[in-house]
C-alpha cells in the first residue's frame, strides 16, 4: 500500500486553478521530490496532503486514510514541516518538544522516550536548554524536524526544508532524511535546489501551473522524454565537421555542439554504437572521448517546464 496517494486533486481559489487534477504516490521507504517553479501549486498540494486545506475535487490518502473523511487519523500518520518556523519566545527547546509531544497525545514515559529519541536523532542534545528564538536557521530546521518525528509518523511532508541552510547543514539534513527512508518512512520533499533532490530522491513529481508534468524515477522520465540514449563525442577536429560526419551515420539524430564536442542521440543497441565508432575511425576521424550522458534532474526539469506561473 502507498504511504501517500494523491488522487486527482483540484483546488480553485476564486478564478485561479492552483492545483489541477494532480495525482502521484509515494511508497513506504521512498523519498519523493516535489519540484516545480514558484507558484506551480507545490505548497497548496502539500497543505492539502497535510489536511490544512481541502481539495475541491479528488482525495488524498495517507496510509489508506482519507484527508476528507478522517483528518485526525491522517494527522496522526503524518509529520508536516512547513517552510516557516514558528518561533516561540521564552521557551527552551526541551519545553518546545515537550509541548508538541503533549499536543500529539503522548503521555508519561512514552513522551519522555519520544523526546529523547528525536533529540538524539537530530543531534539537538547540546541545545535543549537554549531558547527556541535564539536558534540558528539550521538548528531551527532540526528542531522542526524533531517536532515532526515525535509521534513517529509513517509519512513526512517537508516544504523547502533546505532553504537558507549552509552546505554543511544541507549535507546533514540529507543524511537524516536518508536514514528516515531506510526506517521505512515515506518522504515527500519540495525544494528548489535540484542537485540536492537528485542525490536523495528515489522518485520525483514535476508540477507546473497546477498540473503534474511527469512523475516517477528520474531515469524513467528521461527515457520518456528522450527514448534514445544520448552520447557525447569529442574528436581532434572542429565540432561542425564532427557533427557533419555523425549525421551521415545511420541511427544518429538530434546532434548539438557542446563543450568542444557534439552531443547526439543514437537509435539502436550497443552494437550500433560499436559500428558507429568503427565507421568514424575508418573515416580518419581522431576520436578522443566518447561517453554516454545520464539523466540529470535539472535537465529533466528544464525540458518539462517552461517557467510559466499562474
Amino acid at each position: 500500500m502507498s504511504c501517500l496517494e494523491v488522487q486527482s486533486i483540484t483546488r480553485v481559489f476564486d478564478d485561479l486553478k492552483a492545483v489541477d487534477e494532480v495525482s502521484f504516490s509515494v511508497e513506504a521507504g521512498q523519498i519523493c521530490g516535489f519540484i516545480g517553479p514558484n507558484g506551480a501549486g507545490k505548497t497548496t498540494s502539500m497543505r492539502i496532503c497535510a489536511t490544512l486545506d481541502l481539495p475541491d475535487d479528488g482525495d488524498v490518502l495517507v496510509d489508506g486514510m482519507s484527508v476528507l473523511s478522517h483528518p485526525r487519523e491522517v494527522r496522526r500518520r503524518l509529520g508536516f514541516m512547513p517552510d516557516y518556523y514558528a518561533s516561540e519566545p521564552n521557551m527552551p527547546v526541551a519545553d518546545y518538544l515537550d509541548f508538541h509531544a503533549r499536543a500529539q497525545g503522548l503521555r508519561g514515559p512514552s513522551r519522555t522516550r519520544a523526546i529523547r529519541e528525536v533529540v538524539e536523532f537530530t543531534g539537538l542534545g547540546d541545545l535543549v536548554a537554549k531558547d527556541c528564538s535564539a536558534l540558528s536557521k539550521g538548528m531551527r530546521q532540526r528542531a522542526g524536524l524533531a517536532v515532526t518525528l515525535l509521534h513517529d509518523p509513517a509519512l513526512l511532508i517537508l516544504d523547502e526544508p533546505a532553504a537558507g541552510l549552509d552546505p554543511r547543514a544541507r549535507v546533514e539534513l540529507r543524511a537524516l532524511l536518508s536514514v528516515l527512508a531506510e526506517q521505512g518512512k515515506g518522504v515527500l520533499i519540495s525544494s528548489h535546489i535540484l542537485t540536492e533532490l537528485s542525490e536523495i530522491c528515489d522518485v520525483v513529481a514535476v508540477i507546473e501551473q497546477g498540473r503534474i508534468r511527469a512523475s516517477g524515477k528520474v531515469s524513467d522520465i528521461q527515457r520518456r522524454l528522450q527514448p534514445d540514449p544520448l552520447y557525447f563525442l569529442r574528436a581532434l577536429a572542429p565540432p561542425d565537421v564532427v557533427e557533419q560526419r555523425l549525421l551521415e551515420q545511420p541511427g544518429v539524430h538530434a546532434p548539438r555542439q557542446q563543450d568542444q564536442g557534439v552531443v547526439f542521440a543514437l537509435r539502436g543497441q550497443e552494437q550500433d554504437l560499436a559500428r558507429l565508432v568503427h565507421a568514424l575511425v575508418a573515416q580518419d576521424l581522431p576520436v578522443v572521448e566518447l561517453r554516454q550522458l545520464h539523466a540529470d534532474l535539472e535537465e529533466v526539469f528544464l525540458s518539462l517546464t517552461d517557467g510559466k506561473v499562474q
Partner: peptide, 13 residues
C-alpha cells in the same frame, strides 16, 4: 504572524 495556529491544528488538539 507565524501561522502557529496551523501548526497547532496539525497536532492531536
Amino acid at each position: 504572524d507565524a501561522e502557529k495556529t496551523n501548526i497547532l491544528l496539525l497536532t492531536d488538539l
